[in-house]
Design a protein around this nucleic acid. Structure first.
Length: 442
RNA sequence: CGGGGCGUGGCGCAGCCUGGUAGCGCGCUUGUUUUGGGUACAAGAGGCCCCCGGUUCGAGUCCGGGCGCCCCGACCA
């Protein structure tokens, strides 16, 4: 993409309403614009990040054998009356009426709908287990939205649901999802730690929250420093071997990790003092096992092996996709701006033409841009072709946080040399065009 | 939902107390200049001063009522 053809409205100054760093940077980098309290439009840069996060989430769900579907945002109140949650949910639920005065709602989650789908289409234990997910916008009418996309009212979420014929199967599904989650967060370039959690309004008795460590996190967290050393979501585990899932689960839950709500001072005391870590975390995912809560209230049964009807055991699994965009920035930024992990960066590299209009730098930049955009990377390079000063281009590139900056100035360009800067480390090196491309593409 | 604050060009703000032609910085446009970390100079464009009503010869400013947004707390993926 050429910057002169892009809607990337960067801001030099901090908007007054943004208090925390991810909110400020998302506004300044032109990723989002607020439309109402807690409701945001995603501009091209933000949308790219959202897409890249969602793509990784989808890929890991698919790898884990979860099937993607797409359920609507608008749901019928009657569906929620079946589970009893229409009255239980409270003012967080956005309730609306259609032209026939039918009661509808903008879904805050989809347990009821997915249970109804299964109920209407699955009759036998032979059809289980099943795991389904979708990536869809949700709405929760928070009393006080804040922190930009970290605490919005409208948010993009991956929510998944598992259906098993017995509890052992449900626990296996739960462990499978825990592995999928750890792999997902690892690929997103963040370190998330699974913490024992309260089950909240969804109910049940087995639940973990996944927290990214960041000083601005909403919860206090306590964890064993061993989490910092192990390979979270290691590829050595296989979904195909139940013993692997058990071993993985044992590794994740064998170490102490809890949010302040679930903190257990006695157990904490068992952790060696040198290994105790306290900090703050941003919740980016949560997994629940909740048994037959919905299959019972909503009358979902299948015929079991002995001919008797059984209520499937269920679990649900969420990842906050839009929240992750903010959370990753909270965990990865510096004074100058965002530092995108390679896998979620909206553009892999920026090409900075320090003297737009100069035949030599223009030519070299076009050559690099053609290579990166048309051949090797697809649309993954942002060419700063504005007739602007060098300082402005440097500042914007740092703000937007591209992993690589390919800096083309008149000095080096004459010798086919460019400067390659790694955003994360600030490391710069003078290289030939070909060597620079090799490093960006590696 | 309790407490506090703010709505004035795209962004950040002053002006309001004490009513009298709407200002500053950044950004934007044009020209010159500069040319490796937001250059300098000059000339411009751009504002229903959140909305409605009232007071007044006259309201951004005073009064009443709405609406929106932010912050602290409680709450929350």
């Amino acid at each position: 993409m050429r910057l002169t053809r892009s809607l990337i409205p960067t801001l030099k100054e901090n908007p007054a309403e943004a208090q925390i760093v991810s909110h400020r940077l998302m506004l300044r980098a032109g990723m989002i614009r607020q439309q109402s309290a807690g409701i945001y439009a995603w501009l091209p840069l933000g949308q790219r990040v959202l897409s890249r996060i969602a793509a990784i989430v989808r890929d890991e769900q698919n790898r884990a054998g979860v099937q993607e579907i797409l359920m609507p945002t608008i749901q019928s109140a009657d569906l929620w009356r079946e589970s009893g949650r229409y009255d239980a949910y409270g003012p967080e639920m956005l309730r609306i009426r259609d032209r026939h005065d039918r009661e509808m709602l903008y879904g805050p989650t989809n347990e009821e709908m997915v249970t109804a789908l299964m109920r209407d289409n699955v009759q036998s234990y032979r059809d289980l287990p099943q795991m389904l997910y979708h990536v869809q916008w949700k709405f929760r009418d928070e009393v006080r939205p804040r922190f930009g996309v970290l605490r919005g009212r409208e948010f993009l979420m991956k929510d998944g649901y598992s259906f098993d014929q017995d509890q052992a199967g449900a626990v296996a599904s739960y462990r499978r999802m825990m592995l999928a989650y750890m792999r997902t967060f690892r690929r997103l370039g963040v370190r998330a730690i699974p913490m024992r959690a309260d089950t909240g309004p969804i109910g049940g008795d087995l639940s973990h929250e996944f927290h990214i460590l960041a000083p601005t996190g909403e919860s206090g967290v306590f964890y064993d420093s061993a989490f910092e050393a192990i390979d979270l979501g290691s590829d050595s585990y296989s979904y195909e071997r139940p013993e692997d899932l058990d071993a993985f689960f044992a590794q994740m839950t064998g170490l102490y990790a809890a949010t302040d709500e679930k903190h257990d001072p006695a157990a904490w005391g068992q952790v060696a003092e040198a290994d105790r870590r306290e900090g703050r975390g941003i919740e980016v995912g949560q997994i629940f096992y909740f048994g037959t809560k919905y299959s019972e209230t909503m009358g979902f049964t299948v015929v079991g092996p002995d001919g008797a009807k059984i209520h499937p055991e269920m679990g649900s699994y969420g990842i906050g996709v839009s929240r992750l965009a903010g959370a990753i920035i909270e965990a990865s930024h510096d004074q100058a701006g965002i530092i995108w992990p390679d896998n979620v960066a909206p553009f892999r590299a920026a090409i900075l033409n320090l003297r737009q209009g100069d035949a030599v730098t223009d030519g070299l930049c076009e050559q690099i841009y053609a290579r990166l955009s048309e051949q090797d990377l697809g649309d993954q390079a942002l060419y700063d072709d504005r007739p602007a000063r060098a300082g402005e281009k440097f500042a914007d590139a740092d703000l937007l946080g591209h992993p690589w900056q390919i800096i083309v100035g008149p000095r080096g360009a004459a010798n086919n040399q460019v400067e390659l800067k790694r955003r994360e480390t600030g490391e710069r090196s003078e290289l030939s065009l070909e060597d620079a491309l090799v490093r960006v593409l590696s």
